[in-house]
Amino acid sequence: MSILVIAEHDNNQLKSATANTVAAAQKLSALMGSSVDLAVLGQDCQSVVTQASSVEGIDNVLVADSAAVAHQLPENLAPFLADLVQQKAITHVLFCSTAQGKNVAPRVAALLDVAQISEVTDIIDEATFIRPTYAGNALAKVKTSDPIKVLTIRSTAFDGVDMTSGAASVVALSDVKDQELSRFITESVVESDRPELTSARVVISGGRGMQNGENFSLLESVADKIGAAVGASRAAVDAGYVSNDMQVGQTGKIVAPDLYIAVGISGAIQHLAGMKESKVIVAINNDEEAPIFNVADLSLHADLFEALPELEKTL
């Protein structure tokens, strides 16, 4: 029995989501008493390998440095990983629940003829997991009957392990064969002054308390300082302060950033439905009884027109 975590990286940098996935692997490892290896598949990814070997609690870093996986093409990755899993008698394969992990994990699972379990938020035992369904409105406890478990791990559900204190051995793997089914053309980071609402790590949203559209510039100034996306409640959109595409909520965008700052938002349930999965929620509101304070991790009862400029200055 052994556990394999697939590292998320861009050939230069190991992504922090990997640390969260390793944390999930360690929870499993504690239950099963098995080792945890970390696979780095890429091209010219030596710096990633170095970082990976420093991740806490990893026994071996398995490295495949091949042109065929330079861009993480799943057609090439999946057969290679499926072979690796069988060769090494791996019982648990863990991916990050990222676009990359979700792209590859099911392909690996299908080649192994096993189910894949998505967006795991908790581990009960080696075959039983918790995962959200219905956009997080129900948590299912599922048990798999398959011998090999292929999981994607929701990073916000596990606190990442230390990425500097480990000392893993590096093991080189064979070359990855190009299946010649697909080719990489280009990749572009979306050029935007601000990150997109649904993918931003920090979101700052304004509600009816902003009083008009011009006042949203107060939010934008804070957002620019911390690289946050700017959102709005439906009340603010309905009142015509900002456009529809900024709406966070049941009928707008569903966001789950690490930090969500709700400013002048009362916290109607429609809004909560769109942001309640956020890791840390901050509420700034001058209404002591605003329902948003019931769900906020940090509540500041203050006049937003004073708090926002101060926030911008202090950050």
């Binding site: 529809n244 709406q247 009928t251 109607a268 329902p291």
Partner: peptide
Amino acid sequence: PKPDGLLSFDKPSSVFLSNTYHEED
């Protein structure tokens, strides 16, 4: 009286349970 959140509720939470949806634009 203010709704207590157990027997009585505010209007937004109620409308939420009616599954009301209109195309926004």
